[in-house]
């Protein structure tokens, strides 16, 4: 019995190095991206995150065009494209009369179309699938080093930025009055979002990488009203989903990144129904409504 459990849950990861790498990638990404995701949702910027994730695609595609499936070229391309769209979105929000959500939707459709066009002009369908949905089961050393470095940078920066970010989120007018760091905190945060999306892109692909940020954050909101606890819940959800996604992918041959995102999706739906804070069927939320 115990040996059965062992062979079911542990063996795939102890016997196959590609599974170990994938799990390592998932854990590192979870540590790095989920706190960013929590702040992203608290700032009601989920859609911005989604648009930026798509924006990385043409950048990575140009990297691919120049030097094939090269991690460095695609990373640099992705970061540049992500930053450009982050800045453009900021400018549009400030100076144009267009609603922010519709301009973001416009940006991400454009990016997706441009990216797919560039890749299919030179590469095969396999390359396209690789870019869109990632290849968490084929993470090589370079990719793992990149993911781990980005996670380190991200966690350290977020520790430094924590206080200003919180104050900027709750009461931006007040924070502007006490500190000139308001704009810096905002753009540094956007840069961290781009870095994490690029990291996520290598493992999960452009279409799925934002899922690792938004879904655990959305789930955590249903279970706690305390920021610290929310960060912890999001992290655990993300790690567990990564494990279960890989597990399903190994045993049932599901495509890996959709499997990971779908596990999160199921947890999200359960939280949506039974979550203690705002869950549809929870007693507390009924009290709030009536």
């Amino acid at each position: 019995m115990i040996s059965n459990v062992y062979s079911l849950f542990i063996e795939p990861f102890s016997d196959f190095s590609f599974m170990q790498r994938a799990l390592w990638g998932g854990i590192v990404l979870s540590i790095s991206a989920t706190p960013i995701g929590v702040f992203l949702t608290l700032r009601r910027m989920s859609l911005t995150g989604d648009a930026m994730a798509h924006a990385i695609l043409p950048g990575a595609a140009i990297g691919f065009l120049i030097s094939g499936v090269s991690i460095i070229a695609m990373t640099i391309g992705g970061i540049i494209a992500g930053c450009i769209v982050a800045i453009l979105a900021g400018i549009v929000a400030r100076y144009s009369n267009a609603e922010e959500d519709s301009s973001l939707a416009a940006f991400y459709l454009l990016s997706l179309a441009a990216g797919v066009l560039i890749i299919s002009a030179k590469g095969s369908n396999v390359d396209l699938l690789h870019v869109l949905f990632g290849s968490v089961l084929a993470l090589n050393n370079d990719a793992l080093i990149l993911l781990t470095s980005i996670a380190t940078i991200s966690v350290l920066s977020l520790t430094v930025l924590y206080r200003p970010l919180v104050f900027e989120c709750v009461d931006p007018d007040f924070f502007k009055s006490v500190s000139k760091l308001s704009a810096i905190a905002h753009y540094a945060f956007l840069l961290l979002v781009v870095l994490n999306l690029v990291a996520g892109f290598h493992a999960l692909g452009t279409l799925m990488s934002v899922g690792l940020m938004i879904l655990p954050a959305a789930i955590s909101r249903f279970w706690s009203e305390k920021l610290g606890v929310m960060l912890l819940i999001a992290l655990l959800t993300s790690i567990i989903s990564s494990y279960l996604g890989l597990f399903l992918s190994f045993h049932v041959s599901f495509a890996t990144s959709p499997a990971i995102v779908l596990v999160m999706g199921i947890i999200y739906i359960v939280s949506l129904l039974f979550g203690q804070h705002g869950g549809l069927l929870s007693k507390k939320s009924h009290k709030l409504h009536f």
């Binding site: 608290l42 919180v166 104050f167 989120c169 709750v170 009461d171 931006p172 007018d173 007040f174 924070f175 009055s177 006490v178 706690s224 009203e225 305390k226 920021l227 929310m230």
Partner: peptide, 24 residues
């Protein structure tokens, strides 16, 4: 200068305690 902004510009649903809010 201390500034007290209009309250409707503040995110009142943000998960933060009174103490942490005031500590700003």
């Amino acid at each position: 200068i201390a500034y007290l902004p209009q309250s409707h510009k503040i995110d009142r649903k943000f998960p933060i305690t009174v103490k942490d809010f005031i500590s700003a």
